[in-house]
Design a protein around this nucleic acid. Structure first.
Length: 494
RNA sequence: GGGGCUAUCGUCUAGGGGUCAGGACACCGCCCUUUCACGGCGGUAACACGGGUUCAAAUCCCGUUAGCCCUACCA
């Protein structure tokens, strides 16, 4: 019988939630959901100097905004609580377990205390490199110079190193990259626990150690992570073996690069998930765009072949997701595609689906006036701006409905505010039926009376109402502004 | 320096010994149009380089180059 699939996302709370991390989390989430498994959120906060509670909150909020819900992990807003049977899910709260496991290795002589100071190691490194060799602790020219042979000065605090195999290859089986071999002699005895506070004490364990213990104790079956960790895996595999742990399956997903092919960083623009949120993107669009980087969904063995097929729902993504259809190479982040996806997804949403996402943006534009509007009004406002690329575009396109034009586009005034157009505008003030049909009928009657084309009146009206020749459909514009306000805005032109 | 990963239009990719090398985004053009958009139609554009193997290589092998990752008492 096969175990339930378990994946995990294990960020360290040392800054904002990076879009690359979100993508990794998304893959873990898709994989778990597809197989009816569990998805764990684990906080890797063993870097004491950089980890903060605030950053943990940022991770939790970012994940929640993206719709990546976790089955096990921290409970938002309460560090002492967690959900799931293998907690706690913050590594600093798991110290007792780590220390016990390290003691176990020490007892079996699979690890040893190291009292070499940084300075001493630096000096030995220089010696080795001066001889044209690569420095590796307790390897090659450095063999026998370290603490492996045990000259215990028990009165000194010590770090702890893991004894790595010295020969042969370490093979990393990987669902995306295939089997990857690492020569054991390219690795050395690495530190599993930092220098302790006092003699005989075990310090804070390091990342590569905690991952192995946690992934096993949390019963993770599939370790899906960024391929920057591929090189860490050969360090971890002998540790699994030392504990007698089963190896989980590994899948190292390619990195996301900036438009210029360099690692995605701040200078490329937005890297933090909250920035994407602020740009007026739908979380569903972010999910789709991120998923489509390095993953090609295949329907009956065939890659998606049309714009229509590109627009997968979450359900479809979950159903179609397969690590075998993932790219091995890094992908550049394409903002244009994200925006296109966003636009398409906005278009196919109902106004009710859109409203909660649009709300914060339009509340700002309207200074809170949005809230008081009727559902009928909101529906119309949303539907007539639903062609926008982003929620910010939509909110901006609605600004005219909430405030009078601060200025008038001079060129437009000159072009459209002709004497005859003003005459027509005067007639327009007489319209009382602000239903779509009523407006259309009244509009046409006025046009006929003055021998004008739709464009002539519509543009003059846009200028008068919005200050510029751009707005939603002219009847929508009139209805959203409302008769009283239309008359008020028209006054100065009559 | 050592080790690892990667390489098809500008971008994301399909294809994986014989294809006019396919699609999507972007871009360009035309059409539609009460503005801005949306939409419709069409177009430009790629197998990193060099050697092999083979009747035949984008596809298999080797090398080169380039990019990225690891090489921390960071994760």
């Amino acid at each position: 019988m096969s175990r339930q699939i378990v994946t995990r996302f294990a960020p360290s709370p040392t800054g904002m939630l990076h879009i690359g991390g979100v993508r990794t989390a998304l893959f873990c989430w898709l994989f778990a959901r597809k197989h009816g498994g569990r998805f764990i959120l684990r906080i890797e906060d063993t870097d004491l100097s950089r980890s903060t509670d605030d950053n943990i909150r940022i991770i939790e909020e970012g994940m929640a905004w993206c719709g990546l819900d976790w089955d096990e992990g921290p409970v938002v807003g309460d560090a002492s609580q967690w959900k799931g049977p293998h907690g706690p899910y913050r590594q600093m709260q798991r110290m007792d377990l780590y220390k016990a496991k390290i003691q176990e290795l020490l007892d079996k002589n699979l690890a040893y205390r190291c009292r070499c100071s940084r300075e001493a190691i630096e000096e030995r490194r220089k010696t080795v490199e001066a001889a044209g060799k690569v420095f590796q602790y307790n390897r090659g020219l450095d063999a026998g110079k370290g603490c492996a042979a045990a000259h215990h000065d028990a009165s000194q605090p010590a770090a702890i190193r893991f004894r790595m195999p010295e020969s042969g290859d370490i093979v990393v089986p990987d669902l995306i990259k295939g089997d990857t071999r690492f020569p054991a002699d390219s690795l050395d005895d690495w530190i599993i626990a930092r220098t302790g506070d006092g003699p005989g004490e075990i310090g804070v364990p390091t990342y590569n150690f905690c991952v192995v213990v946690d992934d096993t104790h949390m019963q993770v079956t599939h370790v899906i992570r960024g391929d920057d960790h591929l090189n860490n895996t050969p360090k971890q595999i002998p540790l699994f073996a030392a504990f007698g742990y089963d190896l989980p399956a590994f899948a190292h997903v390619p990195m996301i690069l900036g438009a210029d092919g360099a690692k995605l960083s701040k200078r490329h623009g937005a890297t933090s998930i909250t920035e994407y949120q602020a740009m007026g993107l739908l979380p569903s669009a972010v999910r789709l765009a991120l998923a489509r980087l390095s993953w090609t969904p295949k329907i009956d063995g065939k890659a998606v072949e049309s714009a229509e097929e590109e627009l997968l729902t979450d359900e479809q993504m979950i159903q179609l997701f397969d690590l075998a259809d993932c790219q091995k190479s890094a992908a550049r982040f394409d903002m244009d595609k994200l925006q296109w996806l966003n636009q398409k997804l906005i278009q196919r949403s109902t106004w009710q689906e859109l409203e909660p996402h649009l709300r914060p943006f339009v509340m700002e534009v309207s200074k809170g006036a949005w809230e008081a509007k009727s559902d009928v009004w909101k529906a119309q406002a949303i539907q007539c701006t639903q062609k926008g690329k982003s929620l910010t575009d939509m909110a901006e396109a609605l600004r005219f409905a909430f405030e009078r034009p601060a200025a008038f586009d001079e060129k437009a005034v000159e072009k459209f505010m002709t004497p005859v157009a003003k005459l027509a505008l005067r007639d327009l003030a007489g319209l009382t039926d602000y239903s779509h049909e009523g407006l259309e009928a009244g509009f046409n009657a006025i046009l006929e009376r003055h021998g004008l084309k739709t464009k002539d009146l519509a543009q003059a009206l846009r200028v008068a109402l919005c200050g510029k020749p751009v707005s939603p459909g002219i009847y929508d514009t009139l209805m959203l502004v409302g008769r009283d306000e239309v008359l008020a805005r028209l006054e100065r032109w009559l």
